[in-house]
Amino acid sequence: MQEKIVSFSIKNWADDDKPREKLMQKGRSVLSDAELIAILIGSGNRSESAVELSKRILASVNHNLNELGKLSVNQLKQFNGIGEAKAVSIAAALEVGRRRRGEDAEIICKITSSRDAFELLYPLMGELEHEEFWIVYLNNSNKVIHKSQLSKGGITGTLVDVRLVLKQALELGAVGLILAHNHPSGTIKPSAADKHVTLKLKKAAEALDIKVLDHLILTQHSYLSFADKGIL
């Protein structure tokens, strides 16, 4: 008896199950992450459909698209059914998404909440594997004048030059500052050193009539605001 061969190609699915057709008929927002990735790769392997393969890839990163975006082409190629072309397509699509978020953040010109500050800074430092310290300079309407990286260091910490921060604030005519740094470890709790440098900058800035409005600690998944927590 000849064994029946089952095709896992998307073109053989029912229309309702085809991600491309589903997107065209119902809109992109109804598609799951796995279905969107399935559109990118087009086909699965001998034992999995494109969607099933996509689900397995997502499961390997706990269904976190930010983590998926960090996988290299070679890492993606470790999955059966993902060759170089498919791996490049996934990597490129996720990079486009990251850049789009960065451009959306640039639209924010006025900071009205810690969330605004987070959205502005996350594309710059939220996914880094090393620690960086950034300063956002604001005018008297809380509009962003400038943002800059103050220091870059290892996971253990960064060096913060208070004089450099205040020198740039005076040159820019800034009256408000938002401090921010990331914790690659994922720990959201501020350290004693984080609190110390915040107090040091706050006191030095006050002498020049410049106010430190907040200090954000960013991780890959969330953030902590010193102002929101009442520890500024």
Results as ranks from 00 to 15, higher is better:
203 K>T: 14
25 Q>G: 00
14 A>Q: 11
65 L>H: 08
42 G>D: 10
230 G>V: 10
7 S>H: 02
178 I>E: 05
73 V>R: 05
209 D>M: 03
56 R>N: 15
130 H>L: 07
105 A>N: 13
190 P>M: 00
156 T>Q: 09
23 L>I: 14
157 G>V: 01
55 K>G: 13
159 L>K: 08
137 Y>A: 04
192 A>R: 09
168 Q>S: 14
12 N>K: 12
156 T>V: 11
145 I>P: 13
26 K>Y: 15
176 G>Y: 03
137 Y>F: 15
82 I>V: 06
100 R>H: 08
161 D>I: 07
37 I>Q: 12
44 G>Q: 12
170 L>N: 06
34 A>P: 13
139 N>P: 09
165 V>Y: 08
157 G>L: 00
69 G>C: 03
193 A>T: 09
23 L>D: 01
145 I>E: 15
134 W>N: 05
189 K>L: 12
110 K>F: 04
24 M>D: 10
159 L>Q: 07
35 E>V: 11
153 G>R: 04
215 H>V: 01
229 K>N: 01
226 F>C: 01
44 G>W: 15
33 D>G: 10
114 S>Q: 03
100 R>T: 02
125 M>Q: 04
197 V>H: 05
88 V>M: 05
96 V>M: 10
149 Q>P: 07
127 E>Y: 10
220 Q>F: 10
229 K>G: 00
182 N>H: 10
138 L>V: 03
104 D>N: 12
1 M>V: 04
148 S>N: 11
7 S>G: 04
16 D>C: 03
214 D>S: 13
73 V>F: 04
30 V>K: 06
213 L>Q: 05
128 L>V: 15
82 I>T: 04
232 L>I: 11
132 E>G: 05
95 E>T: 14
224 L>E: 02
156 T>F: 08
225 S>G: 05
61 V>F: 05
179 L>E: 05
140 N>R: 03
202 K>L: 07
148 S>H: 06
195 K>T: 12
206 E>R: 14
38 A>S: 15
82 I>L: 11
14 A>N: 13
146 H>K: 09
195 K>Y: 01
55 K>L: 13
99 R>K: 15
143 K>G: 06
138 L>R: 03
22 K>T: 05
207 A>G: 10
87 A>M: 11
105 A>C: 08
144 V>A: 15
56 R>W: 01
74 N>L: 06
98 R>P: 14
2 Q>K: 07
75 Q>K: 12
181 H>W: 06
76 L>G: 03
176 G>H: 09
73 V>G: 03
59 A>W: 03
181 H>E: 14
122 Y>E: 08
128 L>N: 04
117 A>Y: 01
229 K>Y: 00
101 R>I: 06
135 I>T: 09
98 R>D: 10
126 G>M: 00
209 D>L: 02
227 A>V: 07
171 E>I: 04
100 R>G: 01
108 I>K: 11
44 G>H: 13
21 E>W: 02
28 R>H: 07
60 S>E: 08
185 S>D: 12
141 S>K: 12
